[in-house]
Design a binder for these strands. Structure first.
Length: 430
RNA sequence: GCCAGCGUAGCUCAAUCGGCAGAGCGGCGCAUUCGUAAUGCGCAGGUUGUGGGUUCAAGUCCCACCGCUGGCUCCA
């Protein structure tokens, strides 16, 4: 009989202290605690373990993340599609998921036909690509989807939003010629950098090469690997090589982002895929009027928007920058007689596209300030006689910084700029 | 899935050896109309995760299942 004993050891006392501090800080930021507390999401472990419900406030954050991503994808020449969640199981026989991934899939049956709930978006995108013949002039095709996928993850691996059974990938497949691989990879890496930049993460890349158990010619692999390498080199991005860690269908680059506590998370991934084009016979018509096999690049940038959201909650400790904050301004009228002025101010903010709420609960001023501060609302307006008379607002940031007698138009102008530029700091904090 | 621990009110937790399920916060009601981080009083809230077993008696002991936490393995 063997007994397993766990331990953690440190070379220096200071390392231990740092580690304990990190654990303490991580606990305070735990998205599983903050999420329900800030009304962002909930998980009903009895009804749908591993499948989060997003509450109205959390849905605002997710939609902001998606809008931001859409904007940049459109810029980068992607087209957006939507594919079915439930598709005939024969599609998954053809893709090979039945053989390699069955244990992780959900199935449903209707009138003697078996359907699978999609665990990945690739086969759906391939069906769209193949629905008409494609000329070499049309390549590359960059097909993008916020694809909701379901994977039966083994019990014991679930973890809040960071490891779930139902999630949404910001997934895209680039169909291109072998000659276009390098340029497309460079495009993806640049897009990753643009999408990550407002969040203030640092990140690093890892290139995974041909594994023992691989599919296809070694020469093709080496060519693909060198395309990935020269893409990384030409961008000047630092990367490690994980020898033999690639998927069996192609080499890949993974991106690890580092959060505010120095913890690393794998989010973005870029994978070359030689297998799917074979299995689905995916071709384009070349200048020679003959069919040629396409190359597929599979890539996701947030990875899973649920996971990315969870990481952001911890990264910001729930205090989202204004562009992501579910409520951007809370107006606190000092007493009932100031509600009218509060409504007038709220209307103006609302018309300017600012997410605003009025907190006119019959509670003391101190209570309402404290409550909204703990909800991490970026800005509070305290409105009493003084403000109503001069048609001004008193601004208090969630860090406690007060600015009295602010002109409303001036506030709107500043905050709109802050939102538009997706700044991480509050305009009235200094 | 594996190893270990845990599951009591919406949340955080209490309940001695197996002997009447309790508190704070939150919620609701009433009073308070207030100038920058918690006003006071009152009320409601429970099939103790689910199912079975032992016992005069189970939140507490035993078994199974579900779920959660930490780790392993796997992954976005």
């Amino acid at each position: 009989m063997l007994q397993r004993i766990y331990g953690t050891a440190f070379a220096r006392k200071k390392d231990l202290d740092d580690y304990l501090n990190m654990l303490e800080e991580a606990k305070k930021r735990d998205h599983r605690k903050l999420g329900p507390k800030l009304d962002l999401f909930m998980i009903d472990t009895d009804i749908a373990p591993g499948m989060p419900f997003f509450l109205p406030k959390g849905s605002i954050v997710l939609n902001e993340l998606m809008n931001f991503s859409r904007e940049l994808h459109k810029d980068a020449g992607y087209v957006e599609v939507i594919t079915p969640l439930v598709m005939n199981v024969k599609l998954w026989h053809q893709s090979g998921h039945w053989d390699h991934y069955k244990e992780n899939m959900y199935f449903t049956e209707k009138e003697d036909t078996m359907y699978a709930i999609k665990p990945m978006n690739c086969p759906g995108h391939i069906l769209i690509f193949k629905s008409k013949s494609v000329s070499y002039r049309d390549l590359p095709v960059r097909m993008f989807e916020f694809g909701k996928v379901h994977r039966y993850e083994r019990s014991g691996v679930l973890h809040g939003l960071l490891r779930v059974r139902s999630f949404t990938q910001d997934d895209a497949h680039i169909f291109c010629t072998p000659d276009q691989i390098e340029e497309e990879i460079i495009g993806v890496i640049k897009l990753i950098d643009r999408i990550y930049s407002p969040f203030g993460f640092t990140y690093r890349a890892e290139l995974s090469t041909m594994p023992e158990d691989h599919m296809g010619e070694e020469a093709t692999w080496r060519r693909a690997e060198s395309a990935l390498k020269s893409a990384l080199d030409s961008i000047g991005l630092e990367y490690r090589i994980a020898e033999g860690e690639g998927a069996f269908y192609g080499p890949k680059i993974d991106f690890m982002i580092k959060d505010s506590l120095g913890r690393e998370w794998q989010c973005a991934t870029v994978q070359l895929d030689f297998l799917m084009p074979e299995r689905f016979d995916v071709n384009y018509i070349g200048p020679d009027n003959k069919e040629h096999r396409v190359v597929m690049i599979h890539r996701a940038i947030y990875g899973s928007i649920e996971r990315f959201f969870g990481i952001l909650i911890e990264h910001y400790a729930g205090a989202f920058p204004t562009w992501l904050a579910p409520v951007q301004v809370v107006i606190i009228p000092i007493s009932d007689k100031h509600i009218e002025y509060a409504k007038k101010v709220a209307k103006k903010l609302d018309e300017d596209g600012i997410r605003v709420e009025i907190d006119s609960r019959r509670e003391t001023l101190g209570y309402r300030i404290r409550d909204n501060q703990m909800k991490k609302v970026p800005y509070m307006f305290i409105l009493g006689d003084r403000e109503a008379e001069n048609e001004k607002v008193s601004v208090r940031t969630r860090h406690g910084r007060e600015t009295k007698d602010v002109d409303l138009d001036e506030f709107v102008q500043k905050i709109r700029e802050e939102i538009k530029e997706r700044r991480r700091t509050l305009s009235f904090d200094e």
